[in-house]
Write a protein that binds this DNA or RNA. Structure first.
Length: 495
RNA sequence: GUCCCCAUAGUCUAGCGGUCAGGACGCGGCCCUUUCAAGGCUGAGACACGAGUUCGAUUCUCGUUGGGGGCACCA
């Protein structure tokens, strides 16, 4: 490893599913690592035992894999800086604490959470700003402190922020120069009374020990950064480059939450969005290639991604555009890829697994029917169900009225003539010959194509709106199609 | 309350002192057409406001307004 190698990490806490915002953070880290020829580390931050679960960890890993965000180091992948789960790194935090104790950079604090809450509440009552911990325990005599610890008194360990510390400055790769007055930094807790590390402490230890060079994370951590820099300084570690990402908001401009509908990656997967779509779309929420290009395949993203082109502004997650983009990806994915992705939805439409396995060619032809008509795969079952009706047909009442029963139209006449063409075994059971013959029929009857094709469509597909007619017919069984027309003729016109 | 951040059409964005303020989604119209789509052409639509700096501000500075985030023994 060279000293200049880029190392980034995505560090979700397994307290829920992989959120849209988290996914984008992951994508940026991943894309940046790839673009820089660096290393992408995945780390599980499970120091909150009350909210972290193994199940959530698995859900997150699954979502990452589904998105195609492969990590070079992390759970299951291993790596020389492991383990990659915080609860397995507790000894490293203990070590760091011991080091700080030895150097007198931390002190035990015996104030209870209740006391502190009360102080905070009182300050707010009096209309005063609560300016952090009042440092009551900072000046307790070390020997007395040790006596109280030995006596088993409950305590946390706080960072002794140097009294003469000037403003904390750093250069954010997205926001530019940042400056925070040091006096607003209180002596934050590093280790809880149960001995577990707090988030800020654990992150700094891990990022330093894992040699992370660029911390790319959500905007909500911007105010945490000066605190963390204080910890880096106390520990004597070099600070990484920070890059903070603006938030992703819901349509109402508020933070994305359950109220806005789907918020997790797996929900989007279940509604029939493609991973390529999600990566492309999320990448563009706060980053642009050139301001012009909107379809950006992952290999291009991995080549061109740069921190410089990340936006500072919060972005609203607009599902309309996501739908459009997914449609674009479906349109260009090709038949065999499509069949893989569409499989479960085809089964919902009425196909059987066995039928798909027996004749994949036939099913791949269905791609042409919907390639330009699908935005999400969950639209597929309804759109293609008619292909699997066999000899049955379910007639849409409105379509029957408008197309077959419209006054003055010669729908019945056209349909009966078409029925004989379709039933004619001498005409090959293929789209073109069938379609051409029906076109000829239009001329013979001196009717506009529309008035001939639409009745046929309704009789076979049950609806005046459907994918291309004879391309569909070709994929069905001749006897079935004829049976459907006969049924329609009987139900609509009698006889 | 306090600290920090942000501000180009409904949405995602380009712009980095002089542009007809560009692209994409969505919306309207036209073309194509056996339906629906897709596609092509086309139209409407934006620099939050107010002061500066400057020959000239969307762009630089300050303020106002609006929005967002942090201020935990959560991450």
């Amino acid at each position: 490893m060279t000293a200049s190698e880029v190392r980034v990490r995505f560090a979700p806490s397994p307290t829920g599913k992989l959120h849209i915002g988290g996914a984008r953070t992951a994508i940026y880290n991943w894309a940046f690592a790839r673009a820089m020829g660096g290393t992408f580390v995945l780390r599980i931050e499970d120091t909150d035992p009350t909210r972290s679960t193994e199940e959530n960890t698995q859900i997150i890993l699954r979502a990452m894999r589904w998105l195609g965000l492969d990590w070079d180091e992390g759970p299951e992948a291993g790596g020389e800086y492991g383990p990659y789960t915080q609860t397995e790194r507790l000894d490293t935090y203990r070590e760091a604490l011991e080091k700080l104790k030895a150097e007198g950079k931390v002190y035990p604090c015996f104030c209870s959470k209740e006391e502190l809450d009360a102080k905070r509440a009182a300050a707010e009552q009096n209309g005063q700003a609560y300016s952090g911990y009042d440092r009551t325990c900072r000046d307790i005599d070390p020997e007395e402190a040790q006596r109280r610890i030995d006596a088993g008194e409950e305590h946390v360990w706080r960072l002794k922020v140097p009294a003469d510390h000037g403003p904390i400055e750093f250069e954010d790769a997205v926001y530019g120069p940042m400056q925070f007055p040091a006096d607003v930094m209180d002596d934050l807790i590093l280790v809880r009374s149960d001995g577990s590390p707090t988030y800020n402490f654990a992150v700094v230890c891990d990022d330093a020990n894992m040699r992370i060079t660029h911390v790319i994370r959500g905007d909500d951590h911007l105010s945490n950064t000066p605190r963390q820099i204080l910890i880096y300084e106390a520990l004597g570690y070099p600070t990484p480059t920070f890059a903070h990402l603006s938030m992703i908001l819901g349509g109402d401009g508020k933070k994305l939450s359950k109220r806005h509908g789907a918020t997790s990656v797996e929900e989007y997967r279940d509604r029939g969005y493609l991973p390529d779509t999600m990566v492309n779309f999320l990448a563009l929420l706060g980053w642009s290639l050139d301001g012009e290009t909107t379809i950006i395949p992952r290999d291009v993203l991995c080549r061109e991604f740069s921190l410089e082109r990340i936006t500072k502004k919060d972005a609203v997650f607009d599902e309309t555009k996501l739908n459009w983009m997914n449609g674009q990806y479906i349109q260009h994915m090709g038949a065999s890829e499509w069949l893989k992705a569409a499989r479960s939805w085809l089964v919902q439409a009425g196909a059987t697994e066995a039928a798909i396995d027996a004749d994949p060619e036939r099913f791949m032809k269905m791609y042409a029917l919907v390639a330009e008509r699908l935005q999400r795969f969950d639209e597929l079952p309804e759109k293609l169900a008619y292909l699997f009706w066999g000899p049955e047909v379910t007639l849409d009442e409105k379509s029957v009225k408008k197309v077959l029963l419209k006054e003055g139209a010669r729908a019945e006449e056209a349909l009966r003539a078409a029925r004989d063409i379709i039933a004619d075994e001498s005409i090959a059971w293929e789209c073109d010959p069938l379609q051409d013959t029906v076109r000829g029929l239009c001329e013979k009857l001196d009717m506009k194509a529309k008035f001939v094709f639409q009745p046929i469509r309704v009789a076979i597909c049950g609806n005046m709106v459907s994918p291309p007619l004879f391309e569909s017919v070709e994929l069905m069984d001749r006897a079935d199609v004829v049976a459907r027309i006969d049924t329609t003729l009987k139900e609509v016109f009698g006889a």
